[in-house]
Design a protein around this nucleic acid. Sequence first.
DNA 1: AAACGGAATGAGAATTTTTCGCATCTTGAG
DNA 2: CTCAAGATGCGAAAAATTCTCATTCCGTTT
Lengths: 138, 138
Amino acid sequence: MQTSDLKKAGLKATLPRMKILNFLESSRVRHMSAEEVYKAMLEAGEDVGLATIYRVLTQFETAGLVTRHHFEEGHSVFELNLGEHHDHIVCVKCGHIEEFFDPTIEERQHKIAEEKGFDMTDHALYIYGICAQCKKEA
Amino acid sequence: MQTSDLKKAGLKATLPRMKILNFLESSRVRHMSAEEVYKAMLEAGEDVGLATIYRVLTQFETAGLVTRHHFEEGHSVFELNLGEHHDHIVCVKCGHIEEFFDPTIEERQHKIAEEKGFDMTDHALYIYGICAQCKKEA
DNA sequence: AAACGGAATGAGAATTTTTCGCATCTTGAG
DNA sequence: CTCAAGATGCGAAAAATTCTCATTCCGTTT
């Protein structure tokens, strides 16, 4: 990451913002709550206040750097945007998440929004189920 | 509604549960938060505790009488099940909700779950946008 | 129809998640 | 280097939801 990435997004390049963006880019976990980001960063020795994590993640979302998801857990989950849009299939047993992209569905969604007279701004598709691993273990 | 509806769902037919089911069936608003149900029932003279509303709506969800949605507002929204599955397109300006059903999307979803090795238990598709009315007003 | 046991309710306390207020500190412009 | 605007940190405050536990209700058994 670079300070220029933040500036391009219209955000001042402050230390906490750099640290958070940095952390998201280096994290192998792609979907995290604000709390999880906070704790993981603490463990990594980066002490950024929880309120700041919330504020910055919301700014990142507005700037399009990050996507906020509302899974079924009662809190927001954030994911760094890596360019390509995709949807999610979530295991209701173990929380395992896989991503997919389906052009047919995308196209139908646009058509539906159009038919209903909406200007689509966003969309979210979540498939819930039991993953292969959990099926085996059951 | 009948006490038998609750019994069929495996729930004891208590007065609060009857009142809530009754209320949902008679409400013209189809998507409501627990808080909204609570307040609307109060105004209608039905005093059921908020904690009970939460408990009962969760039980109804488990029993399949009701569906819980996670829109972008940070709280759960409940909808009485009327048989046919459908998805939602939500106006991000005024909160207006329309429902739709698209067989092509449904089919693709099943196929995707299968490909990924999941047993699909549920799925949720939300399209967000600006509705025709709000576009006019802007 | 009276009695009983287990489950359900109500009210408020407690949790959890997220936002706010404000004093202090940084960033970026000049 | 200086300064103002904006950002951060911390704790308080909100908002959403769950929990605790004493009391009440439901359905079954006498």
